[in-house]
Design a protein around this nucleic acid. Structure first.
Ligand SMILES: Nc1ncnc2c1ncn2[C@H]1C[C@H](O)[C@@H](COP(=O)(O)OP(=O)(O)OP(=O)(O)O)O1
Ligand SMILES: [Mg+2]
Length: 282
DNA sequence: TAGATGCTAAC
RNA sequence: GUUGUUAGCAUCUA
């Protein structure tokens, strides 16, 4: 890997020239099926060995350009931000007395990302036509199965270095819409939680925001994973809320179980009582 | 301080 | 055949 990095650095002037003249364009990603924990299958689109570092370089330039335009309530795929900060923000909302949550998750998110909406947003900041063409080709990269490339008209490849940034650019429209409506929310990638004071307000928000997402942004809400519920009945970003004397945060039971099993697998016959005590205090 | 490797978590 | 972003931890090197 370090070898390849050195090679690319050595030939970077040539590669750069080929990219800017349009002589070389990314056009396909390799299809790889990955099992999901819940039993489903995630279709990854892996860039070619050449496209990957090219897109990573593009990201280094584009990321700072768009960071300033993102919402304060967006936490996913962003430098300096993590899931813990998002959950703490959610906890603040609940402590304010908003005891109902509209938990929204998008269906096959990356696979259904519209191309024209994020491209028009990118065009507002990036004026260079050659760069815009490059970015569009990263979105349009077809899925390659056994050397057969199928055309893509929607969706951004899961595994493309630019994909997380482009998805945030698209969902910034959602953030602005939620802010315009005065909602208290935090979003991590396609996982968006809106905190409201009553179930009725929650159902109303769920209906209008679902309509907005499906109509304006051409996305689909995952009705299995989404719900209007009490926050302490839901899991958010691997954490769940618990109600003792005050609102407290704890790691979701499923995450604890997974970690416990991992630890037990490693230490085979050794002290498991020690682990139980350790996890309880955490 | 900088580079490299590996692991965990979220999506 | 095992991707990406982000965050964290660990180890090695000078
Ligand atoms: N391991 C990963 N590698 C690359 N991209 C990922 C990975 N995990 C998640 N993503 C990205 C692509 C997904 O579309 C997006 C949202 O994740 P997730 O909600 O778990 O799946 P999904 O939205 O594609 O399907 P679902 O319909 O089950 O919600 O995050
Ligand atoms: Mg989803």
């Amino acid at each position: 890997m370090a070898d390849f990095k050195a090679w690319l650095q050595q030939h970077w002037p040539v590669v750069k020239a080929a990219l800017l003249t349009g002589e070389y364009m990314p056009n396909a990603v390799r299809k790889v099926e990955m099992p999901k924990p819940n039993g489903g299958v995630r279709t990854l689109g892996m860039p070619t060995v050449l496209d990957r570092p090219i897109q990573q370089a593009l990201l280094q330039v584009l990321q700072p350009e768009f960071e300033s335009g993102f919402s304060e309530h967006s936490y996913g795929f962003r430098p300096g931000r993590n899931a813990w900060q998002a959950v703490q923000r959610a906890q603040d909302y609940i402590r304010e007395g908003r005891h109902w949550v509209v938990d929204l998750d998008l269906e096959k998110f990356f696979d259904l990302v519209n191309h024209d909406i994020p491209m028009s947003r990118v065009a507002r900041k990036v004026k260079d036509e050659r760069i815009l063409k490059l970015i569009r080709r990263c979105l349009e990269a077809g899925l390659m199965t056994d050397r057969i490339v199928s055309m893509r008209t929607e969706g951004t490849p899961q595994g493309g270095p630019l994909s997380p940034l482009l998805s945030n650019i698209l969902l910034t429209d959602l953030d602005r819409e939620l802010e315009r409506r005065g909602h208290r929310f935090c979003r991590y990638a396609d996982d968006c939680n809106i905190y409201v004071g009553s179930e009725q307000a929650g159902q109303r928000a769920m209906a209008t925001i679902t309509g907005y997402l499906e109509c304006r942004l051409k996305l689909r809400v995952n009705r299995e994973k989404s719900a209007v519920a009490r926050p302490w009945r839901r899991k958010f970003l691997g954490y769940s809320f618990t109600w003792h004397k005050q609102m407290r945060l704890r790691i979701a039971v499923s995450s604890i179980k997974r970690l416990k099993d991992r630890v037990r697998e490693i230490v085979v016959g050794n002290a498991s009582r020690n682990l139980g005590a350790t996890i309880k205090t955490t």
